[in-house]
Nucleic acid binder design. Structure first.
Length: 262
DNA sequence: CGTCCACGTCTAC
DNA sequence: TAGACCTGGACGG
């Protein structure tokens, strides 16, 4: 489920349902391999932020603050639930009277850590560039011209777009939709494919997906009321056109570019 | 039943 | 660049 759009929506959802609520406890499922959270709080508030594919919970009691950084994995999501009706596969939860805010993650690919900053293995979130697309292009061009990056930017653009160092937030459906709509040969070396055109289309695709409520493709039972049908109609390429298998994952693309795939 | 597939990272040959 | 990590839904026999 979660790419940048969904993580952002998720974070906004958390802020909405946690507004004016005080939490008193945190619990981890036994089966999750992530670390147990121990809080020095008796009564705390929860706020959230997102950045690329990472989601942060900010836990506050007076001036004490603890930040927890989450990767939502393939299918993790957050939901406010009744305490007596907690969903299966809830692996972390925060209690608030009769309610809990829970991290539901059936496949357990999600991870969390207590920290003070976003992951340093990842680059700048693609949506922080939305109003500064020229800067993003400069950033990429700077890397392109850097001796140590030659190999990376010689990769085909469809591979680079999953590299979270350069496209933090892009995942499998966004890269397909962006390359398709930009009408760029996805097998072109990244250094040739990257242009203001690609960046502008990226901005537009992210915006449109966000306005539709994000990806509602399969197994996310969406608590936010986004329209699954609209989203599936909006998708033009992912799951619909030509595809190749690339190191375990599928890449969907415009069939007219197949001849450039070796 | 079984087999294939899923919006993502990791790490180990 | 395969796999490992996981559950569950879709679909075929």
């Amino acid at each position: 489920m979660p790419e940048i759009v969904e993580v952002k929506i998720m974070s906004e959802y958390i802020n909405k349902v946690c507004r004016n609520k005080y939490f008193t406890n945190v619990k981890k499922s036994d089966i999750s391999k992530n670390s147990k959270i121990i809080l020095p709080f008796s009564k705390f508030k929860i706020q959230s932020e997102s950045y690329g594919k990472e989601l942060k919970l900010i836990l506050k009691e007076n001036k004490k603050i603890i930040n927890i950084y989450f990767n939502l994995g393939m299918c993790g999501y957050w939901q406010m639930m009744k305490k007596d009706n907690i969903k299966k596969h809830t692996h972390l939860l925060f209690e608030c009277n009769d309610n809990v805010l829970g991290f539901v993650d059936p496949r357990r690919f999600g991870t969390w850590r207590i920290g003070s900053d976003w992951s340093n293995n990842r680059g700048i979130s693609v949506d922080s560039w939305i109003y500064e697309m020229n800067l993003f292009l400069k950033y990429l061009n700077c890397a392109i011209n850097h001796q140590s990056c030659v190999k990376i930017f010689n990769q085909p653009i469809y591979k680079l777009m999953l590299n979270q160092k350069y496209f933090n937030g892009i995942g499998n459906y966004l890269r397909s939709e962006i390359l398709y709509r930009a009408d760029i040969n996805p097998f072109l070396p990244a250094k040739q494919a990257i242009s203001s055109h690609l960046i502008n289309v990226m901005k537009q695709v992210i915006k449109e997906s966000y306005e539709l409520g994000g990806g509602q493709l399969k197994d996310w039972n969406n608590p936010f009321g986004a329209d699954e049908k609209n989203f599936n109609e909006w998708i033009q390429c992912y799951g619909k056109l030509d595809k190749i298998k690339d190191s375990g994952r599928r890449f969907w693309f415009n069939p007219k570019y197949r001849k450039y795939y070796e």
